[in-house]
Design a protein around this nucleic acid. Structure first.
Length: 736
RNA sequence: GCGCGGUUAGCUCAGUUGGUAGAGCAUUCCCUUGACGUGGGAAGGGUCAUAGGUUCGAAUCCUAUAUCGCGCACCA
């Protein structure tokens, strides 16, 4: 067989290592990741429909993991598909400063490598270090994203903490402040003693632990037993609450008891009746600690009780004598339990399991404390938005189907979250982040986009929750607050937001909040949620378990195309998936199979020009009909985001049908067939291989682009901007 | 407590509007001057968690149960 015109590379097995970086560079240099270039060079019609999507910005806390790789793959498939359909296609990259996560990471490194704390450096010097770390992480992340083949428009790259995004943040804050949606309030907040900052309700992670439930009374002449798992907080009690209908305690309601010595602290306990108390729980009586429990604070407000703070920001006691003063809460607990035992006040102790609140990023045990913080009011009616509250705006966006969530079972989860939503605490006592745009001078307070004029103004030292800036992401990246920015006008609302279901509340909900409030429109029309990538045993991948697979290692070993396929196939939206190297290996073999299929087809069709050919014999007509039908089916499934099905189907077709059956038959035809049959078959092979490469391109962009380059020498266009194939009898797209 | 998801071949999972089950890996046997051994051909292996129901027909729809996992709430 004469293979003289075949690219010599084809004679060896497919080598992703030699191929991928070269191909990516070619794509980048073509400029076609940027929709403006596609229009300029006539590849995309300037009036074409748009497809826009932002990449969920990875945290600049280190390196990418397989979850990121899955995100990049799914979104790249969407993007490449849209681009091939001729849409004005923008996939916009960026990174997230991830305030607490990044700061605590740098703090750890500083401690480990230099034995220093951030206070030793001071705010300015510490921030320098964080920025340096963030820059390094950023570079790693960008490099990794390119290795995955992501066709992101790097010319539009953004950072959640850069100048433009800071302007967006200040603008948004100022408007919310003026509308009375942002307020400063003294409330019980979630204090993280480890991270030394307040966190929002959503940043709490509950951990189930064994605890002791102690039943006791404050003193021998106190009439009621109460139960608690935290005896040390009881020095801050100012009341005991009972249910108003509880016959056992009715006679005590309204009375006040003075306890002179409760482990060195004097208490003044009023008995109050409150509907929120459950008669069946414990003794049916609840010791009220207004400073260290949200629920108790609510009861205290209803009954105008005193609030007495007894624990500080370091989780140490601030009252009592040497037995407990300045002791850690856990130590003080022992002391007080002993005190109860010694004074015969302890009736019983029982083992219970309880959920304890920990901080998502630092793991610190949350200490509820009363503090002055900034909040976003989610219930206040907004004039400009038909007197709807933020909660209502968020609900409406999804209820009305303006935002379509895939899979739609997450709508219920979303509604449930909103129903339980309380005001969002947005201030953080950390240094890395957007500084709150509020200044103080004596009693005066100023909130503005720009620094106030005049001397003596001091800016609030707190920074904003990282999700505040992330919430603006779909439009802060497109030029907002400049409403005339052409990107903003062209690409917002975005078409798709693809991310893991684990940040539905953190991010999706906050984007809907910000966008519906600030712009009066939804941030995106579709949300596609993917699951968590787990290891072969189904465990979450984590550094501590040492079971995380490094995407870079995997792509180096098997090729990015193989990694991409293995992340897509067998994974429906919203479902967790399991990853194993076996699976990746299978798709590495597939890339090579495709390589050899192309070699066979090209070496058998050397003098054939793939022009319009109409002399197909009946057998081949049927085969063409088959592949055309498959393409129609596949296109429909692509439009429905069923990539896992398409990937599997095209895999099955190329291997089990095209290679195993059709190519084998072709050998016979080429040897024994009539000239007409041979000619027909040769054209069919070219016709079909071309379609296969196109359909497979969003999934396996590298190997398909490489083969495309060898496929038709006279064809100078890159596969990435070829038109998606549709069968000749449909009206859309380019007839073949 | 409220809600959601899973349960299909040894393992990991597909199965689109209901039409008597599929893939990858693993296992067994055969094939080597073949486009490809990163391959080809063949085989074994499933009462689709259980019990009812709807239907001519159910892995698929409905009800209940079991079991595993997840989210939210509670957590004195």
């Amino acid at each position: 067989m004469n293979e003289s015109n075949i690219d010599p590379k084809l004679l060896k097995p497919y080598d992703p290592k030699e191929t991928e970086d070269r191909i990516y560079k070619m794509w980048e240099e073509s400029g076609f990741f940027n929709p403006d270039v596609c229009i300029e060079k006539g590849m995309t019609d300037k009036d074409a429909e748009t497809f826009s999507m932002v990449l969920p910005p990875p945290n600049v806390t280190g390196t990418l993991h397989l979850g990121h790789a899955a995100t990049l793959t799914i979104e790249d498939i969407m993007t490449r598909f849209a681009r091939m359909k001729g849409y004005k296609t923008l996939w916009l990259p960026g990174t997230d400063h991830a305030a607490i996560a990044t700061q605590s990471k740098v703090e750890k490194i500083l401690e480990k490598e230099e034995g220093k704390r951030k206070g030793d450096l001071g705010r300015e010097e510490f921030l320098k270090r964080v920025n340096q770390f963030a820059q390094e992480s950023h570079d790693t992340i960008i490099n990794q994203s390119k290795k995955m083949g992501a066709s992101l428009d790097w010319s539009r790259e953004a950072f959640t903490l850069d100048e433009k995004r800071n302007l967006a943040v200040r603008t948004a804050f100022k408007k919310m402040y003026d509308d009375g949606l942002i307020y400063r309030g003294h409330r019980i907040v979630n204090w993280d003693p480890k991270g030394q900052t307040v966190i929002s309700d959503d940043e709490i992670v509950y951990e189930e632990r064994k605890a002791k439930l102690y039943t006791f009374k404050y003193s021998n002449d106190f009439p009621i037993y109460i139960s608690t798992t935290r005896p040390e907080t009881k020095v801050g009690d100012t009341a005991v609450a009972v249910h108003p209908n509880d016959e056992r305690y009715k006679k005590y309601i309204g009375k006040t008891y003075e306890i002179k010595d409760f482990c060195g602290v004097s208490l003044n306990i009023k008995i109050v009746a409150d509907e929120s108390v459950e008669k069946e729980f414990g003794t049916g009586a609840l010791g009220v600690t207004p400073a260290h429990s949200q629920i108790d604070a609510d009861i205290a407000t209803r009954h105008k009780l005193d609030t007495k703070q007894v624990i500080n920001e370091f989780a140490k006691m601030t009252v009592g004598d040497e037995r407990i003063l300045n002791k850690k809460t856990i130590e003080a607990r022992e002391v007080i339990v002993n005190f109860l035992r010694e004074n015969n006040l302890l009736e019983k102790e029982e083992e219970v399991t309880q959920n304890i609140s920990t901080a998502e990023r630092t793991g610190g045990i949350i200490e509820p404390l009363p503090k002055l913080q900034w909040f976003i009011d989610v219930n206040k009616p907004i004039k400009e938005r038909d007197n709807k509250s933020l909660k209502e705006l968020m609900l409406e966006a999804v209820r009305s189907k303006e935002v379509n969530i895939i899979p739609n079972r997450f709508e219920k989860v979303y509604y449930n979250w909103i129903e339980n939503l309380r005001d969002w605490c947005i201030s953080r006592q950390i240094w890395y982040g957007h500084r709150i745009p509020v200044w103080y001078k004596g009693e005066e307070i100023y909130c503005g986009v720009e620094t106030p004029n005049g001397n003596g103004w001091e800016q609030d030292s707190d920074t904003l929750d990282t999700w505040f800036s992330s919430g603006l992401w779909t439009f802060s990246t497109l030029g907002w607050p400049d409403l005339n920015a052409s990107d903003f006008k062209t690409y917002h609302p975005t078409n798709m937001l693809e991310t893991g279901y684990d940040i539905l509340f953190f991010w999706i909900a906050r984007m809907i909040l910000m966008s519906t409030y600030l712009l009066g429109e939804v941030p995106f029309k579709n949300v596609y949620l993917h699951g968590i990538v787990r290891d072969a045993q189904g465990r979450k991948m984590s550094k501590s378990l040492g079971n995380s697979l490094d995407p870079l290692e995997l792509t180096a070993k098997y090729g990015a195309d193989a990694v991409r396929m293995s992340l897509i196939i067998g994974t429906g939206p919203g479902n967790d998936s399991k990853m194993s190297e076996d699976k990746i290996r299978a798709y590495k073999n597939y890339a090579n199979k495709l390589w050899n299929i192309t070699r066979f087809v090209l070496s058998n069709t050397e003098n054939i020009k793939n022009e319009n050919f109409n002399n197909y014999v009946d057998v081949d007509k049927k085969l063409i009909d088959e592949i055309d039908k498959l393409i129609i089916e596949i296109t429909k499934e692509m439009d429905e985001y069923k990539f896992y099905l398409v990937g599997e189907k095209i895999y099955q077709y190329t291997w089990a049908r095209f290679a195993d059956i059709i190519l084998e038959e072709s050998k016979n035809i080429f040897e024994n067939g009539a000239e007409k049959e041979i000619l027909s078959r040769k054209h069919f092979l070219l016709y079909t291989l071309e379609k296969i490469l196109k359909i497979l391109h969003p999934f396996m962009p590298f190997v398909t682009e490489e083969l495309w380059g060898m496929f038709l020498k006279e064809n100078k266009k890159l596969l990435m901007i070829e038109k998606w194939p549709v069968s000749p009898d449909t009206s859309q797209g380019e007839p073949v």
